[in-house]
Every structure is written in C-alpha cells, then in structure tokens.
Design a protein around this nucleic acid. Sequence first.
DNA 1: CTGTTAGCGCTTTCAC
DNA 2: GTGAAAGCGCTAACAG
Lengths: 347, 347
Amino acid sequence: MKKKTLHPTLSHVAREAGVGTTTVSRVINGGHRVNPETLARVRRVIERLGYMPNQAARTLKGHRTKTIGLVIPSIADPFFSSCAEAAQAIARANDSLVMLTVTSNDPRTEMENLDLLIRHRTDGLLIVPANSQSQILRDLLERVAVPVVAIDRPVSDSSIASVVCDNFKGAITGTQHLIDHGYKRIVCLTGESTLYTIRERMRGYRKAMEQAKLNCIIDSSVKDYKSAEYAIKSLLDGPSPPDAIFATKNSTTIHAFEVLQRLNIPVPQSIALLGFDDFELASTVRPPISVIQQPVEEIGRRAAEILFDQLLDERGAASPASRHPVQVKLQTRLIQRASCGCTPPTP
Amino acid sequence: MKKKTLHPTLSHVAREAGVGTTTVSRVINGGHRVNPETLARVRRVIERLGYMPNQAARTLKGHRTKTIGLVIPSIADPFFSSCAEAAQAIARANDSLVMLTVTSNDPRTEMENLDLLIRHRTDGLLIVPANSQSQILRDLLERVAVPVVAIDRPVSDSSIASVVCDNFKGAITGTQHLIDHGYKRIVCLTGESTLYTIRERMRGYRKAMEQAKLNCIIDSSVKDYKSAEYAIKSLLDGPSPPDAIFATKNSTTIHAFEVLQRLNIPVPQSIALLGFDDFELASTVRPPISVIQQPVEEIGRRAAEILFDQLLDERGAASPASRHPVQVKLQTRLIQRASCGCTPPTP
DNA sequence: CTGTTAGCGCTTTCAC
DNA sequence: GTGAAAGCGCTAACAG
C-alpha cells in the first residue's frame, strides 16, 4: 500500500548484488561482457528492487535524452492530431518519448514552448511554425543544437528540413475542377489569411482563375458559422451571385455547408462547393462534399522519420554537413464527391 | 550558420561573468539575494552566451522533472485529443511539459509506455487505463512514487484518483428517452465490450429496459461500417425489427447512421437513433443526431488539475496521507436533436 | 551578498 | 570479467 518514496539507484543494486556499479551498468545496457551467473544474479536484484534507470542521470553523462519536442497549433484539430499520432508512433519505434506542446498559432507561446523544450534538451524538434516568416524563429531554430523538421509549413529562407503539402498545386486542381464543371463565378472563401498554407491555397485559386480568364472573388472574413452566414448571404444577395465556392480549409468548408443547408440552398444545383482538406463525415453528409485531400498521416510520419534519420547519422556519420537539407513536398488528391456537381458511383 | 554543438553550462557563465556558480544559480532561479549590479552583469552574459539551464542536471539534484506523463488510447480520436489538449494546457500553466504516449488500448503497450515514463521520472501520471481490472496495472500504479489520476475509466479496487463520466446514468437517460418516445424494440448497438465505459453504458441500457419491462436486444458486433451494415440488415430482416437504436459510442453511432442512410431507411420515421458521445457534425447531418453528451474538455482539465493539486501539496503538506482519494464522476447531458423523434427548434 | 564544496545517478576509461 | 574513480551540470549547505 505504501508507496516507495525513493527510487532505488544503480548503486543500491550493486551493493545488494555484491558487485560494482560498472557491472550493473553493463547489465542494464544489454548485459554484454558479463559473466552469465553474475548477470542472472544482478537481474534478480533489479527485479526484486523494482529498479529503473534514471534517465536524467544518463542524459547528464552526455547522452541523448530520448525525447523529441513536438510543437503544434492544436491537438483538438484532427489534422494536427493525426500528425501527432503518426509522429509519436515513429518516436516510440525509436525508443523515444514525445514532449507535446501547443501554440494556438501564437508566436509568443511558440517561443516559450521552444524555450522549455530546449531546456529539457530534447534530441530533436518537430514544429508547425506559427509564422513561416518569423525572423526570430528562424534564428532560434538555426542556432539550436539539435535537428529540426518543420511540418505543414516551411520556415522561409532557411535550410531547415520540412514536410509540407503542395498547397498551391492542390488549390489549382480544385479550382480548375470547378472551372471544368462550367462554373464562372467561383468565390474563394477563407479566413486567417496570414498562414502559409492558406496563402498558398489562395495563390493557387488565383492562378487557376486567371488562367481561365475569370474574375477572382475572395472573401477572407470567415471565422465561424456567424461570419460564414453573413459572407454567403451578402454574396448571394449581391449583384452577381457566385455559382461555386472554393473553401480553403476544413472548418470553412463545414461552415459554408451548414449555412447553405440552413438556407435551403440546393448544393450543387444552386451553388457548388469544394473544400481543401478532407474531414470525417465529408462523404456522409448530403450531398457528399468534394475535397482536395492531404496525406495527413504521411506528413507526420515522414517528418518524424526524417528527424530520426538525422539523429541517427549524426551519431555515426563522418559527414554531418554533407546532408542536404530535406524539403519534402507531398501531393494532394482531388476527391470527387457530389457537392461539386460530379455524380460519383455510390461507393 | 554553424550550429553550436555544445550548450554553454552554468560554470561557463560563472567564469565569463567572473562570479561563482552559486551566484549564477541564484540568478537563473529568480535572482533573489543577489547584488543588482552582479545580477545585471550575469544576466548579460547569459544572454550573450545563449545559456539555458539543463533540466536533467536539476532533476538529478532531486528536483522535479517538470514533466507529466499522459497515457491515452489514441490521439486521433477526438474524445481523447480534447482531453489531451485540456491536460496540456493545465500542464503548461504549471510550467510543465506533457510526455505523450498512446496505447491503442493494448495492455502490453500500456505497460511499456508506463515503464518508459517512469524511467524519465515524470512528476505525475495521467492515464486512460486500457483495462480497468488489470491486476498488474493496479499494482504498478500503486507502487509508483508519483501521483496518478485515471481518466475516463477508473482503476478498479484501488485508491487511485479518477475523473470519469457517469456512463451508467447517461445510458439510462438516453434509453429512457427512447422509451418515452414510445419505442418498444430498442436495440443496443455496440462493440469492444471489454472497455469499462462501454460496459457501464450497456448496464445503463439494460437497467432502463428492465425497468420499462422491455426486452433487451444487444448486438455487440459493430466494429466498422461493414459490420454495422451486416448487424443492422440482420436485425431489420429479423422476425421483429427494432424501432430504435441506442449506439454506445461515437463511431458506432456514425456507422449506424451511414448504414441507415445508404439503405434509405428514414430516421426517425422507420427507426430512431440515439448515440452516446457527441461529435462534430452530429447537428449538421440530416436528420441531426440526438446524443448523450460528455463534458469532454472538462474531463481532461479536471484530471490535470487534480494531479497538480496533489503535486502541489505533496511539496508542502504535513499530511500527505490525509488526502482522500479523489473520485470525480461527471454528469452527462441529453442533447435532443431530431434522430430520436424529437423536433427541436432550429438552433 | 558571494564563493567553495559535496554530491544527485549514471557511464566510462583504465587498471587489475 | 570486473571494479575504482572521475566527472556530466546543477543546487544547497556552509563558510566567509
């Protein structure tokens, strides 16, 4: 019942087993070059005492902490939670723990988190930068003594490794698809236009529209249901109402859909809808919503893999400088459902 | 461009500043009892060198690691990711980092994770036990030298603090609501019936049905869309098809809904649906789905708060044993939407 | 107010 | 095959 207040230490074990600390150390590190009998005896004592090596002490001897830091905007967001899940899986496969921190996309919080993580001497850092352009962030990241991999958004003008989606091309594909359907007045609905991903998607939208010689209509006021409702109503009541919506992110797509549904505006008959980023019930709602899908899980996985690669050959490699900066760009996929006007086979 | 390979240490700072290590230590710990001039000078050196205290060394001196361990079944699951988000917020408010691990509800993985966390000497543990009854888990947790709080599922027959929902009462409320609507043949759809939460919900369902003198119909074969389809079709084609479905968890509710929709079975006209646990688009799909809602965010928050409370008065309190074990049970709420037969006002 | 000193628990030469 | 001893970076007496 009573909890042990103190953890037994390596020297406790050594004393109990009647051996030196060196031997115990060898035992807990694989038991090589130890007499089989001694080994068995020591192991028994370890078991009996419930001894567990103190990671802090190991770390202090100049070794790895066996932890990596993960800095993301939010965990509640399914996109980032999937990244996190993948990253932690890779970490565990590498016998490491993930230190989780969230920034809410606030640069100040982000710096605080990084500071804390660095104090804890994480072996590496996985980060979704709140602001791709931030000078201070870039400086900190380049000066840090550990490998860093940026996720979802690159760190501009730096050699920091990154794994991002081709948001630009994805947005072109989506917008083009709407254009191919014959829509002429395609509005781009968006919010938080300071984020790298959103800006890239808007850029893609513009590119596709210009190429088709259509007018860009951009409304970047959508933050929640209320603002989406206001935006869509205004657009619809305007002089030349849009015939299609390209939503630049998950939540915007959902809000737009809810508004249209509430207003009893038939989709895609009166207005079509296509969103960037897939979501759980996109194929379940009526009509099913067409989207540009990102390889969410792959983003987190690849990023973590790259990080551990760097960690691995930092240890052995004679050429730590020879590694080119890794800049992975993952492709998106157009998922044709019904909201854009397509009539996909019932899956 | 070149990364500093080594972190400067406290004694580097001391030498540079021409003071002793004690002084530097005092400075980084608040700067009390230090001559203002000395303090300023030391701070300047710290700044210049980019010095950051090594947490491992502090830990070794017997101090807190300023980390807590979080052990959850999955991060991709919105329920747990919300808990995690709340927990990490509380941790950050207490200047601590969260070590994230996921178990996939596998007891073996769970033990491995705990082992790793204990090696890292986290100050406390937040855990969603894969198996509430596990003897070994209980033993480990009671023997561990740090506070533990169980989330979502208690650890049976132990004094371990926990924050869970009143799943039993919630299920009674939900089932009773269906009964009040006049449904007679209410089927309970479920899967993974080994989990504490699911079992409690099934118990609640049974209780309500028995009280109303109705026959229990339980199908616990639902794991995915396929199995849901098979289960529902079988039920519907049976001798006395159900007129209502009580789904014991999020994903089961969704799968059931998808099946009914695919089969063009009108809800709630032909069959009503009510699920346990709310989800993002529950009010957006048609018909909107009635659910028993859990205070998800509160669960994570309360658990973390309790953990840090214990941490706090472990430090000061003369009566560490006087603390009663905390067993919080949070109440659920019935959210009446349309799928159960209600006609809620358009929100 | 400030410096000296002794470890915290572990790994790692270097002898035996 | 095994042990003694020297630290890793930091804090906390204990003297000045």
